[in-house]
Computed example of a mutant assay.
Amino acid sequence: MTCSPLILAQPHLLHRPAAADPALAGVRTLDELYNAIAPISAQMAMLPAADQGRTRRERQFFQHDRYYGIQRVTQQGGTALAVGAIVTAWRLAPDGPPPLVAALIEIAGIEIGSRYPHPRAATEQDPLRRWIIGHQVFAVLMQGLIMRTAALINPPAHHDPAADLAGLTRLFRASGAALRYTGQVHPRYYRDDIRPSMPARFSGLMAADHHHLLQRLRVAHPILLRHADSHPAALVELRQAWASAYADHTEVCARLVGSGTPSLLGTEHGQPAVESLEHYRRSRLSTIPEPN
């Protein structure tokens, strides 16, 4: 791992965003923001860490986190997410797409003078570091989506469902951008260096945040059904954004491993990874209803 661990809370702790820290008011650049959260980051590192889990699935989550440099804490979900979003935005900024950096800053709930200023010059990125940072960014985006979905399920006072649907759409679009960024490595490097570095039978299905997001979306399905009547255009855009993220994932997979190669989780002669992604796309998109 070529950067310090990213501290995030266990996804079931994500219900409400953290209150804005007055100490962060007035920051003008992403570098200033990153430096300003240093004391909070230190506090997050001192929180109780999650263990390896008791069930097979929990141990798989732990294994996935360990490979991608994610350290889980068992308290302060909203604060850990806000800090993690700022940290990943700062790591991504030198060579990441500005709208993707902006999406991370939005998750943190911080206003800065410009959406994504960063005086640091972009340097040549180590492909494995890009791979790790890209997956850390994706984990933060999944947590942002979990938080947005929680607001639909248990709306706060003065709730605006249109704003939450639009926020979900922006974050799904950002997820596609994160997948494209992560996959910008040479297929030979992926085959010879990145893929062998992964544990046997490793898979994105072991990502705790993505798994929990799917659970939250299933809970939110009856609410989304109501919004299909009141906000049909927003539901169409949301479905399109999620479908587009799956298309981005499929494109990256096909470029790096080919259209006929099974996933790491599969057997040598198992279903090709791109076909598995298409199966997941069809089944999971049904969570978001199509307006009549």
Rank of each mutant, 00 (worst) to 15 (best):
E111V: 12
L128N: 13
E111P: 03
D193Q: 14
R195G: 00
A151G: 15
A207D: 12
R120T: 08
A150E: 15
G183T: 10
A166V: 10
D192C: 00
G204L: 06
I153M: 15
V185H: 03
I132A: 11
A177K: 02
I110R: 08
I105C: 09
L217F: 05
L171K: 07
M147Y: 10
Q125L: 11
I107N: 06
Y116N: 08
M198L: 08
R173N: 01
F138H: 06
R188P: 00
L217K: 04
A162H: 14
L179H: 07
A93M: 10
P187E: 01
D192T: 00
P156H: 13
L165Q: 06
L152W: 14
G134E: 04
L168N: 06
R115T: 15
G167A: 12
S175E: 04
Q125I: 05
H211K: 14
V185F: 02
W131K: 00
V219W: 13
S203R: 12
E106C: 14
T182G: 05
A207W: 08
P161E: 09
L213A: 09
A200K: 02
E111F: 08
G183H: 13
A150D: 14
L128H: 15
I105H: 04
E106P: 11
D164W: 11
G134S: 04
P196H: 05
G134A: 02
L214A: 07
I107C: 06
G113Y: 01
L145D: 08
I112N: 06
S197T: 04
H211E: 12
H210C: 05
G176F: 13
T169E: 10
F202I: 06
M142L: 03
P196R: 01
A139P: 04
P97G: 05
S114G: 06
L128I: 11
P99E: 10
L104T: 05
H210P: 10
Q136M: 05
A103F: 08
P119C: 00
S175N: 04
V101I: 13
R218M: 14
A200V: 06
T149D: 15
N154E: 15
P156F: 12
A178T: 01
V219Q: 15
A103D: 05
A177G: 02
P161A: 03
P99D: 09
R170W: 00
L165P: 11
P99G: 12
A208K: 08
I153H: 07
V137H: 07
A103S: 02
R120V: 04
